[in-house]
Design a protein around this nucleic acid. Structure first.
Lengths: 235, 235
DNA sequence: TCGGGGCGTGAGGGATGCGTGAAGACCTGC
DNA sequence: GCAGGTCTTCACGCATCCCTCACGCCCCGA
């Protein structure tokens, strides 16, 4: 059955969405916070995600970014905010559609159908990546080494996520800086050196050997960690 | 270049869309009727279709249906009508999004990016080139020989890319130097000798035999690697 | 047959960029 | 206001890469 994940903190909206969706034959999972939403997107593997932007814990675009780290599930944003820059930010973060509250249920259902119709066939890529004794849980933003959870700073995790979600690909300095630090960056290669070093240290990687992160001099870095357990390439 | 087909009969909207889209680097084709729109969708093969619902000749949903008969191109509907049943009809007919006039141009551009991003996976050109035991992955900037990743310096890779992307074509010294080293170069054939040698060595090619890189004395070089087809590692 | 230009080969100097270590600036929660 | 953690910045060896030069070979024309 088609499964829809609803992430919203307003009881009224939650009830209305659940009722209407179930009446149309969808299986519905409802959670109330952004953190729960990201986890549910990983665990429940829904076919569609309806996301409220005004969540209490996380910014909406942040939720989209985290979900997009491990799944291509269609995301429709529901929001009371009608400002253009909110829509642009959400859509560019990876959302598929943006509906302003209050919305008509028939329209929402039609947009949901359109989004799911377009969706690519679901690839069962597990949000848990393993590289020997290293585990990266993209949904929980958790990194485990030798059974022990590692503490990564936000920047370190952002860098790791950028690397592991683009395996074997040469990521240029500029690309990494823009992705992890923001659009205004692109030349600060000393940042990269510092954080790549910190990551290597925490992951137990060695700059000299080609273990996990390979340096491509003058160009960028590349994640070459061999995934263990399960299928590999995720194109 | 990304091509956008605009189907609208209002001169004001046409001008505004053309200006904004071209300012953002899109190639724009504009027609004024539904019949023309369907034909242009087939002939011009656009990457995105912006469709006004209030056309003089055909009903908007009919245009969508006809277009959908032969292409999966993303369709965004522009309409003055805000009624739910119009949106539902358009979306269920095969549209990907529905924007009500008057709309903000930034929002429209963001929705266009989202629609095209989702359609992107049907990329028919796998950038993985194979020549016997040599693989060149242009997307990942990865070169593999006998199952082992090769380490190429930026200049070496730039030269290889120039050669591989112009197979069987005679590339002059000047052309190669300008492409790999920059506009200010053109006479430094010693650079080419040095780097062609390094490339041949790493690729396992032999200058004497005509394996991969052929020397055209006094003129330039030519890539003659025979592409082999077969099961690639990315399936 | 001889000479010269172009090419392949090998090696080396200089500059760039990287890894490393450390320290100050900043921010955030208590 | 304070303390801990985090981000940014700097200096210093060192490996790597780009560029350069010298030499011998082959092909081609005189």
């Amino acid at each position: 059955m088609t499964k829809v994940l609803v992430v919203d903190d307003e009881p009224q909206i939650r009830r209305a969405l659940r009722t209407s969706l179930e009446a149309h034959g969808y299986e519905v999972v409802v959670v109330g916070t952004g953190e729960e939403g990201v986890l549910a997107a990983a665990d429940a593997m829904p076919d569609l995600l309806l996301l409220d932007l005004g969540l209490p814990d996380l910014d909406g675009t942040e939720v989209i970014r985290r979900v997009r780290a491990f799944t291509e599930v269609p995301v429709i944003v529901l929001s009371v905010r009608d400002a253009q820059h909110d829509k642009v930010a959400a859509l560019d973060a990876g959302a598929d559609d943006y509906v302003t509250k209050p919305f008509g249920m028939e329209e929402l259902l039609a947009r949901a159908r359109a989004a799911m119709r377009r969706a690519a066939p679901e690839d069962p890529a597990p949000p848990l990546l393993r590289y020997g004794e290293l585990e990266v849980d993209l949904a929980r933003r958790l990194v485990i080494r030798d059974g022990q959870a590692l503490h990564l700073t936000p920047t370190e995790y952002g860098l790791l996520e950028a690397l592991v979600t683009n395996p074997d690909k040469l990521l240029t300095h500029q690309w990494l800086l823009r992705r992890v630090w923001g659009q205004g960056y692109g030349t600060e290669t000393t940042y990269l050196r510092t954080y790549v070093r910190a990551l290597r240290k925490k992951l137990g990687d060695d700059a000299a050997r080609q273990g996990l992160i390979v340096t491509e001099p003058g160009v960028g870095y590349r994640w070459v960690g061999e995934p263990t357990f399960g299928a590999s390439s995720t194109d």
